[in-house]
Design a binder for these strands. Structure first.
Length: 574
RNA sequence: GGGGUGGUGGUGUAGCCAGGUUCAACACAUCAGACUGUCAAUCUGAAGAUCGCGGGUUCAAAUCCCGUUCACCCCGCCA
């Protein structure tokens, strides 16, 4: 007889009276000496199966030896549970299966940890080592299946919109821009290496030149940089590119896609269009380019205080602050720890005012004139029991610190808040003073900024759009440059003209053969899933993630390589 | 490269920053026995850790110090 006629979790009152066979894992057992209850688990859920000595004594004796996570097959009859013994916590709690035949398909050693979600989880180290057991937990199965549903829905949606799913190579040319590449040695060209793609960026643009017009791919991307809770060395993007579009087209496509996915997978309705703010406004109001907008506490400018008598504020590049409502009763030591927090962000200090009886209280209040104090209170709409925090420093430090304080003190509501950040600068200077693209060098500048490409480079804004969900950057894209002369101008502005001709010659060639206007976006599937599933780390939505040092604790990769294998590749370890 | 947190039976924690009659406690899991209606079963009993690893201080170290390693969080880095 077949392993199963039904799935455990799908049985219900409708099945009462039918004979079924079920296969699955022993989730838990309750042995009463007489009757034995087993919770039998398969992918669909759990059902209680009953071994009763009066039904079949031989099977009952066999059932005594069953242990957690043994794999068994049973045959039995679905019965309504006796009155008063129904379990409302179980989807199948109104019925049980009276067993008349049991076979053990496989035994299990005693477990390194319990396969349950109600007790505190073992250390992540242990979970990752025995990932096959960790993934048996209901919560993890939910996450991985959610991931499947989201990806399927995205494919469906894009297919309906006329997009083609096209694969691009994983063994590609290494280019100097961007993150560190993972390299793959070429046996056939000793001393030469492929790189794994950081994204399919160039190939999808080439597909536009090729005339496919609408492309997407669930693409694995690889970046050899340090890991974080939201960063793995390999991660998955929904990569999209489309011809004959502007920013509006891509943003509304993504809004429709996200709306469709959330409504059909999570049954959560999403308001579109998403709010849009420019990069400059985001930096001004939130101090960062991926603000969490689930709470207010926006940053206010206090530049007028640079002319006050308070020396600390004199000559500072920026003076800005936030108002943490209803925290005016904070203790002195709590304020001290906020000051420490600010210092850890790079600030030299943190000034504070409590609003009490409609006026500002602070050790530094005496340095300010009455009208200055009033103005501070007005800027923040200060009310009694508010706490106003002010940082005066270099602009970047002020932004970083206030942004961090905002997240530290904010109480975000449980919700999904989307936001577009548009018009990021095309270029930025890194700390050693070299100009680099803030997205990638194929991003189109705004048409109005073209004249500034050669002079005030940092003022040039780009046709970019990043999509933010609850303060997490879940995607970003841009309209690309489709004219070779403008592409060359950008390369020149970056001072990489010669290098680019060599590295990206094929793109410049492609653009010169009638490339259509085009643009696209990539959504970080792992991060999107992390927020959808309510996890704190993308590791919980990836079946087999790496540790912070880039190792896999289950397979113990990476490993050293035999000399023979190295020799064949023409590689020597230093 | 840097800052921080943690590592105590299989798992999660307590003990540690007052070093010694607590050289190890509690819960869960495991094993054995009992039990015919439980569902995180219950009851009784047993087994199981030289406290990540190495060194040092001390009459004495899970506890203090130094180093190291692993996991996690963060900065740098991530076009």
């Amino acid at each position: 007889m077949a392993y199963r006629t039904h799935y455990c979790g799908n049985l219900g009152l409708d099945d009462v009276g039918s004979s079924v066979s079920l296969s699955g894992w022993v989730h838990s057992r309750r042995d009463h000496g007489g009757v034995i209850f087993i919770d039998l688990r398969d992918i669909s859920g759990i059902v209680q199966v009953v071994f009763n000595p009066e039904i079949d004594s031989e099977t009952h004796i066999k059932a005594h030896s069953l242990r957690s996570e043994w794999v068994i097959k049973i045959e039995g009859k679905v019965s309504r549970r006796p009155k008063g013994t129904e379990n409302p916590n179980l989807k199948t709690g109104e019925i049980e299966v009276i067993v008349y035949s049991l076979s053990v398909l496989n035994e299990s050693r005693s477990l390194p940890f319990e396969i349950v979600d109600y007790t505190s989880l073992p250390k992540e180290e242990i979970r990752l080592k025995h990932r096959y057991l960790d993934l048996r937990r209901e919560n993890m199965q939910k996450n991985i299946i959610l991931r499947h549903r989201v990806i399927q829905r995205m494919r469906q949606f894009l297919d309906k919109q006329g997009f083609f799913e096209i694969e691009t190579p994983y063994l590609i040319r290494s280019t100097p821009e961007g993150a560190r590449d993972f390299l793959v040695p070429s046996r056939l060209s000793p001393g030469s290496f492929y790189a794994l793609p950081q994204s399919p960026q160039l190939f999808k643009q080439i597909l536009m030149v090729s005339g496919f017009e609408k492309y997407f791919q669930i693409a694995r991307c690889f970046r050899d940089e340090d890991l974080r809770a939201d960063r793995q060395p390999e991660f998955t993007q929904l990569d999209i590119e489309q011809s004959f579009v502007d920013e509006e087209d891509i943003m509304s496509l993504i809004e429709d896609l996200i709306k469709d996915v959330f409504e059909n997978v999570l049954n959560v309705s999403i308001k579109t269009p998403f709010p849009r703010i420019t990069y400059d406004i985001a930096m001004l109001r939130y101090g960062c380019d991926k603000p969490d907008t689930r709470f207010g506490m926006e940053i206010e400018d206090l530049g007028f205080l640079s002319s006050s008598d308070f020396n600390v504020f004199k000559g500072k590049e920026a003076i800005r602050g936030i108002n943490r409502k209803e925290m005016g009763d904070i203790s002195r030591s709590e304020i001290d720890s906020l000051i420490e927090f600010a210092k850890s962000c790079g600030a030299s200090g943190l000034c504070w005012f409590k609003v009490e009886e409609n006026s500002l209280q602070s050790p530094i209040a005496k340095f300010f004139k009455d009208d200055e104090l009033r103005k501070i209170k007005d800027v923040f709409l200060g009310e009694d029991s508010d706490l106003i925090l002010i940082v005066a420093d270099k602009l970047k430090v002020v932004c970083d610190t206030l942004s961090a304080l905002r997240l530290h003190l904010g109480k975000p509501k449980e919700d999904f808040e989307f936001l577009w950040i548009v018009e990021a600068p095309l270029f930025e200077y890194d700390e050693d003073g070299t100009l680099k693209p803030s997205h990638h060098p194929f991003t189109s500048p705004r048409d109005v900024d073209l004249p500034f490409l050669s002079k005030e480079k940092v003022k040039v804004k780009a046709k970019t759009y990043d999509v933010i969900l609850n303060g997490c950057e879940i995607g970003g894209g841009s309209i690309r440059i489709h004219k070779p002369d403008i592409q060359r101008m950008v390369f020149s502005a970056l001072g990489i003209k010669e290098l680019a001709e060599k590295e990206f010659g094929f793109l410049l060639d492609g653009l010169s053969f009638g490339a259509p206007p085009h643009g696209g976006i990539a959504l970080g599937i792992d991060r999107l899933l992390m927020v959808m599933a309510g996890c704190d780390s993308i590791r919980d939505v990836i079946a087999f993630p790496k540790t912070q040092t880039g190792t896999c604790l289950m397979t113990e990769s990476p490993t050293q390589i035999e000399n023979m294998q190295l020799k064949e590749l023409g590689i020597k370890i230093l």
